[in-house]
């Protein structure tokens, strides 16, 4: 892509889904554009571009963050994981199984972001409570389901002694 920013490009080195990447890129290029347009990773979706909907959620050094708000220079030397990279992890698979079993999705545009947020929360704290998992969902919107399936997923994934 000839989509470099007008500012001088930088040498960017970061780990994407376990692979070290080196590229010349404008320092203010959005991580979401690097992922979707440059790397062809379409798991993260673009929904609002201002960090409000969570459809583009990725993990940055294990924390769930919206990729639309991260610029290239901010991921220098860091580890970025998208749904494509997370999907082989047992924690992600547990989350995915629960989302599928409880029918927590309809159009599904929000669901890679939701799965990524839940995976981050459970990786950081394997015995997270339902309240903590609900808190981890505060940046993810869903317009189809009314969230009932997600409520069940959270009760399913939360540590048994800490249900709401």
């Amino acid at each position: 892509m000839s989509t470099q920013n007008t500012a001088a490009s930088m040498q960017l080195n970061f780990t994407l889904n376990g692979q070290l990447l080196n590229m010349r890129v404008g320092p203010a290029r959005r991580l979401l554009d690097i992922l979707r347009l440059d790397q062809g990773l379409t798991g993260p979706k673009e929904g609002c571009s201002i960090g409000r909907c969570g459809a583009c959620t990725v993990q940055l050094d294990g924390a769930a963050v919206p990729a639309c708000l991260l610029l290239a220079y901010q991921v220098q030397g860091k580890e970025v994981s998208t749904v494509e990279g997370l999907s082989s992890q047992p924690v992600f698979q547990r989350v995915a199984d629960s989302l599928i079993e409880h029918g927590a999705l309809q159009c599904g545009y929000c669901i890679p972001g939701i799965a990524t947020s839940l995976t981050a929360a459970l990786t950081q704290k394997p015995h997270a409570s339902a309240a903590e998992l609900e808190q981890a969902m505060c940046g993810n919107l869903c317009r189809c389901t009314g969230y009932s399936g997600l409520q069940q997923v959270i009760n399913d994934l939360a540590s048994p002694d800490q249900h709401i």
Partner: peptide, 10 residues
């Protein structure tokens, strides 16, 4: 749903 797995795995 028949399309659940594809959707959840992105």
């Amino acid at each position: 749903r028949p399309d659940s797995t594809e959707k959840v795995y992105g």
